[in-house]
């Protein structure tokens, strides 16, 4: 079964074809890597998939549902969640509340019951807290639950972003350079966490990464983007040994 199927996705800014005929099919439960040199259009692909940009052309099907042209909010509700290359946390909220914002749509009580502190408030908040702590524990963030998100060290901020995305209970997770700025031991730990995530949650992941080692180590398939176009696509051994890929990455 396909989780994500993208056909002929295009967008240009002015004259620049940032993403040009992008095609990808990702199976349920797969961990797919999206790599490419700086400015290749990787983040733009994420912005297209999540409705931040509307595509000029093409079609995006998520788990059988056509989400082309839908809003970011609708796409999240349809089951797609993401993290950002430049971390975007709710800085002045606690770590716990950052995750609870992610739980917002699946845990409801009215504004009035919140203000009047009706039983539904206490019931829902309690279960939200339990669920949020469960997610935080996966990332080893439970001890920092009450800290402000800004006060977390860099590596943990990246993890918190993933935790918040997971809280929306997505079918598909898009991670934009989750290991950026991490030292090797933090990167190893992150790889281990991602592997664990896939066991715990039944989730499909598309991951942008510069770090070849990380990509080759955990991804089942790799897509290489160059100047907005497909350069290679397949299993890691083939892709990483592809002379075109080597040329694009190492120069001539």
């Amino acid at each position: 079964m396909d989780m994500l199927s993208v056909k002929n996705l295009c967008i240009s800014f002015g004259g620049l074809h940032a993403v040009d005929s992008f095609n990808i099919t990702i199976k349920k439960g797969e961990l797919y890597g999206l790599i490419g040199p700086n400015g290749a259009g990787k983040t733009t692909v994420f912005n297209l998939l999540t409705g931040v940009y509307k595509p000029d052309m093409g079609q995006i099907i998520l788990d059988g549902q056509n989400i082309t042209g839908k809003s970011t909010i609708e796409i999240n509700k349809a089951g797609m969640a993401r993290t950002f290359q430049n971390i975007r946390l709710f800085d002045n909220l606690s770590v716990l509340d950052n995750v609870k914002v992610g739980l917002h749509n699946d845990n409801r009580y009215s504004t009035a019951s919140g203000i009047l502190r009706l039983p539904s408030y206490f019931r829902t908040e309690k279960s939200m807290n339990e669920e949020a702590y469960k997610i935080l524990e996966v990332f080893g963030l439970e001890d920092e639950a009450k800290h402000h998100a800004t006060n977390l060290p860099y590596g943990k901020q990246r993890k918190l972003e993933i935790a918040r995305a997971l809280a929306t209970n997505p079918k598909m997770l898009l991670l934009d350079e989750p290991a950026a700025g991490m030292n090797p031991s933090e990167t190893d730990e992150l790889m281990e966490t991602i592997t664990r995530l896939r066991k715990l949650y039944d989730i499909t992941i598309l991951l942008i990464e510069h770090d070849m080692k990380l990509v080759a180590g955990i991804c089942e398939k790799i897509f290489v983007l160059n100047f907005g176009m497909e350069l290679a696509n397949g299993v890691p051994q083939d892709v990483l040994n592809d002379p075109e890929v080597i040329k694009a990455y190492l120069g001539e």
């Binding site: 999540t50 999240n76 946390l89 914002v101 992610g102 917002h104 504004t111 995305a165 809280a167």
Partner: peptide
Amino acid sequence: IIVNFINSRSGRAVMAIRDNKIAAESVGI
């Protein structure tokens, strides 16, 4: 009324928007 609002689901959403609109949208707010 105000503190209860702030410390409820809706208030959290409001503060999330204040802190980072794009991120709030990305989690379906």
